[in-house]
């Protein structure tokens, strides 16, 4: 193969890229023992993996289909309910956490910190906490999902409010509109397409999260997943995995289409 000549003065890869790559490799090497990666493990790790994949090639347990459907429905319902609760909470919180709509810089700062706290821990940790507080079932799952979602959604909402054009805001203010009126008629309509994009993204994320909340007994399909794993019921595992894949993909496609229709791809949710 012909030797590559990088488009730099000396033909070598740029300095900063080389540094990052070398440092990463060093870090990987240093932490290898910590994560129990060794030559031996990699060489001998293939066999159990192949064996396991072989186990997965079984005929699905069709009698489980009914229960699977019920559990998947529960998962979706938890997602929708948690997202709805989070939306109701997030809109006012997001307004308070937006620099240009917040009544006071102090409120803005506090709100931002609270949101960053809510975002810090994964849903599953909150689910653990809420399960030991209110007991097993979908309720702690919905609570955990809604709590973390507020952290994300209110932040996204606040950010989309912050980039709203000044013109409409001044327009409303110049006709004597108060704070609430400004928010209602100048800020909200401009931030709305962004909201829709955010909502779809969050719904997507929450569905995945809801699917695993059952691991700690917080409702949804996750519980069945763990149980059938413990019982080595591969014929059920495979059904659960496929149904999660199907439903997540379905929502993904749907939200992609909707998002394109709403915003013509101009919103970038992840900043």
């Amino acid at each position: 193969m012909q030797k590559w000549h990088w488009p730099t003065p000396n033909g070598l890869p740029p300095f900063h890229i080389s540094i990052v790559v070398i440092c990463s490799i060093l870090l990987l090497a240093l932490s290898a023992s910590m994560v129990e990666i060794s030559y031996n493990r990699i060489v001998n790790g293939w066999r159990p993996m192949v064996d396991f994949l072989g186990h997965l090639l079984v005929t699905p347990d069709w009698s489980y289909l009914g229960q699977l459907g019920a559990k998947m429905l529960e998962t979706v319902e938890m997602t929708v309910l948690a997202t709805a609760i989070a939306t109701i909470v997030s809109v006012p919180v997001g307004i308070l956490a937006a620099e240009n709509a917040s009544p006071h810089p102090f409120v803005y700062r506090i709100m931002r910190e609270v949101l960053s706290f809510a975002r810090a821990l994964p849903e599953l940790v909150w689910a653990l906490v809420f399960v030991s507080a209110v007991g097993l079932g979908p309720l702690p799952g919905v609570m955990a999902l809604a709590f973390v979602t507020v952290g994300f959604m209110a932040k996204f909402i606040a950010e989309s409010i912050e980039v709203v054009g000044k013109g409409a805001v001044e327009g409303i203010q110049s006709t004597g509109g108060g704070r609430l009126q400004t928010i209602m008629f100048a800020i909200m309509p401009q931030a709305l397409p962004d909201f829709a994009g955010t909502l779809l993204y969050i719904l997507d994320h929450n569905l995945r999260a809801a699917a695993i909340l059952g691991l700690v007994g917080a409702g949804g399909i996750g519980y069945d997943m763990v149980i059938s794993m413990r019982m080595f019921e591969y014929d059920r595992i495979i059904m659960i995995a496929i149904s999660i894949y199907l439903i997540v993909t379905l929502l993904d496609r749907l939200s992609d289409k909707l998002r394109k229709r709403i915003i013509h791809g101009k919103v970038n949710v992840i900043r």
């Binding site: 790790g45 999260a209 699917a211 659960i240």
Partner: peptide
């Protein structure tokens, strides 16, 4: 992307 990471982790713990 569709497979939740914990589900994958569960599977791989069983495998390796």
């Amino acid at each position: 992307r569709a497979m939740p990471d914990l589900l994958l982790a569960l599977l791989f713990v069983a495998a390796i």
